[in-house]
Design a protein around this nucleic acid. Structure first.
Lengths: 125, 125
DNA sequence: AACCCTATCGCAACATTGTTGCAAACATAA
DNA sequence: TTATGTTTGCAACAATGTTGCGATAGGGTT
């Protein structure tokens, strides 16, 4: 995959942010006019294909992207994500991998575990 | 809450369908022109308020509604939901309640556990 | 350095989902 | 039957995400 200005900038943002970001979150962090809205969607999807990011569908239906600490060794991404209803951020809680066991014959491809509530930061304030 | 034609019809649909339904799914099952699109959104939300249904955000961001077998005794709804990528349905798997444990000071309000893959029906065909 | 190939981009247009304000219609209780 | 407040329809809007296509620009090759 090619290194383009947009790709580099977006990857940099994903890698230096500790919460998951939507397309519009990314756009807000990019220099004005660096690239088109559509490009952000496309680059984010490409980063997922390249295993440099993973997708989380937030409780409001908005898709967020985050890099993953353990990506190099494990592409499962079945850890819990937490949506704070107060500061409106989604964070990976990598330490927490829920255990569950489906009935026979279910083939699992993707897992989207999202817990919504109030994060410690917001509770403290 | 009042019993209206729309409410009765939508509740009937939710209660007699064993998969979770989006607004447009419900609309497709309603008699043509029984009520407006907006009314379906509003009725579904009202049913959630009355604890007659619960919400699941699907992996594609679309919000689905389902009645819940154990609603009378337990409003947690933290069971697993399964999205079949083949037949494109979301089903409640009430038997499976994942166990997880967040770090201290996270206040949990809602849980959205979604597993996506291929369901037994589609695998058999 | 010039060239080529093709991945990537920008733009415009579109689709879908979901929300809001307000006036009209309706359910229910008095 | 009337009064009250809930519910509805309509129209308009907002946000997210997708698609097609011509233009642009990586990056390898000569």
């Amino acid at each position: 995959m090619r290194n383009t200005v947009a790709r580099d900038a977006i990857l940099e943002i994903i890698n230096t942010t500790d919460v998951a970001l939507s397309q519009s979150d990314v756009q807000a962090k990019l220099p004005e006019g660096l690239c088109n809205r559509v490009t952000i969607y496309r680059v984010l999807d490409r980063l997922v294909d390249e295993h440099l990011a993973h997708k989380i569908t937030n409780i409001d239906g908005v898709i967020k992207y985050a890099n993953c600490q353990s990506c190099a060794t494990n592409h499962k991404h079945n850890h819990v994500h937490f949506n704070c209803e107060c500061c409106n951020t989604v964070t990976c809680i990598e330490a927490v991998e829920p255990s569950f066991k489906l009935p026979a014959n279910y083939e699992v491809n993707t897992v989207n575990f999202l817990v919504s509530g109030i994060c410690p930061e917001c509770k403290g304030n």
